[in-house]
Simulated scan of single mutants.
Amino acid sequence: MKQEYKNQLLKVINSYINISDEELYSLIKLLKPVSIKQDDHFIKSGDTKPWLGFIISGLFRGFHINEAGEEYTKHFFRENDFMTAHSRSLVDIDYLPEVSDYYFQALEDSIVLKIDDVDEAKKLLKHACWVEMFSKEIERIHKIEEDRIEYLMLDDATTRYLRFKENFPGLENRLKQLYIASYVGISPVSLSRIRTKLKSS
C-alpha cells in the first residue's frame, strides 16, 4: 500500500482514537487498494462483501431500490469516509453479515481501501480500539441519517435542501441534481426552483 494512503488513513483514525503501531498494522495488513470507475458499484444488493471500505478519493452514494424499481438515496460517502453495508458487524464479532439490500455506487472515479475477509475482520475486532473507533463512526453516520428522517417528516423542501448542504458541505457541485433531489425527497424540478429562489434572495 502506498505510504500516502497509510498517512491519510492514520490521520482519520487519529481523529477518533489513539492507537499503537501494532494495532494500526492489524488493520493495514487487511486493506487492499482498489480502483472503482464512475457508475460502478462497491457493494450491490445481494453481496456479502466487501465487508468494509475506506475512501481514499472519490464519491459514492448509498441507495435502495424498491419493488417498483425506484431508487432512494440514503447517504453520500466521500474521501476519508468508511463504507459498509453491515454496520453492526463493525462492533459485534459474533454477527455474521447477511446479504446486502443496499447499493454503494461510485459517482466519480474512486480509490478505496477494502476488506473482503470477514473471518480476518473478526480477528481485527478483538482489538478493542477498533470497536471504539467504528462505534464512533457509526454514531456519526446514524446521527446524519436520523436527522434526515426527522426533517423529511417535519421540514419544508427548502429547509431539507439547506440541511443537506450543512451535512455534506462542498458536495453540491460534485453531485447530479437528481441525486440531491432524491436525498431531500423532492423532484429535480422542485430542487431547481428552490436553488433559483435562494440565489435571487
Results as ranks from 00 to 15, higher is better:
residue 35 S to Q: 01
residue 111 I to A: 05
residue 85 A to Q: 14
residue 41 H to R: 04
residue 9 L to H: 07
residue 41 H to N: 14
residue 80 N to W: 10
residue 96 L to H: 11
residue 89 S to E: 06
residue 79 E to Y: 04
residue 134 F to T: 00
residue 86 H to W: 13
residue 56 I to R: 12
residue 94 D to C: 10
residue 106 A to D: 03
residue 79 E to C: 07
residue 28 I to R: 08
residue 120 E to D: 07
residue 123 K to W: 13
residue 57 S to R: 09
residue 11 K to L: 05
residue 72 Y to K: 02
residue 124 L to C: 04
residue 124 L to H: 08
residue 81 D to F: 02
residue 45 S to Y: 15
residue 129 C to A: 11
residue 9 L to A: 07
residue 37 K to A: 15
residue 120 E to R: 02
residue 86 H to Y: 12
residue 68 A to L: 13
residue 120 E to Q: 12
residue 90 L to H: 14
residue 121 A to V: 15
residue 38 Q to F: 03
residue 8 Q to C: 14
residue 57 S to I: 08
residue 121 A to N: 06
residue 32 K to M: 10
residue 26 S to R: 08
residue 87 S to I: 04
residue 19 I to P: 07
residue 54 F to Y: 11
residue 125 L to Q: 08
residue 122 K to C: 09
residue 95 Y to H: 11
residue 62 G to I: 05
residue 78 R to P: 01
residue 56 I to H: 05
residue 47 D to I: 00
residue 17 I to C: 07
residue 24 L to C: 01
residue 102 Y to L: 03
residue 32 K to F: 07
residue 60 F to A: 13
residue 11 K to G: 10
residue 45 S to D: 00
residue 16 Y to E: 10
residue 60 F to E: 01
residue 67 E to A: 13
residue 67 E to L: 15
residue 12 V to N: 01
residue 20 S to W: 11
residue 128 A to C: 08
residue 10 L to Y: 03
residue 27 L to W: 00
residue 104 F to T: 06
residue 47 D to F: 05
residue 108 E to Q: 15
residue 9 L to M: 13
residue 50 P to Y: 00
residue 57 S to L: 08
residue 110 S to Q: 14
residue 117 D to N: 10
residue 25 Y to N: 02
residue 133 M to E: 00
residue 129 C to Y: 12
residue 71 E to S: 02
residue 24 L to H: 01
residue 72 Y to I: 04
residue 91 V to W: 09
residue 121 A to G: 11
residue 52 L to G: 14
residue 38 Q to R: 07
residue 119 D to F: 15
residue 33 P to F: 09
residue 90 L to C: 08
residue 36 I to E: 00
residue 98 E to N: 05
residue 45 S to M: 03
residue 57 S to K: 12
residue 83 M to C: 03
residue 120 E to F: 04
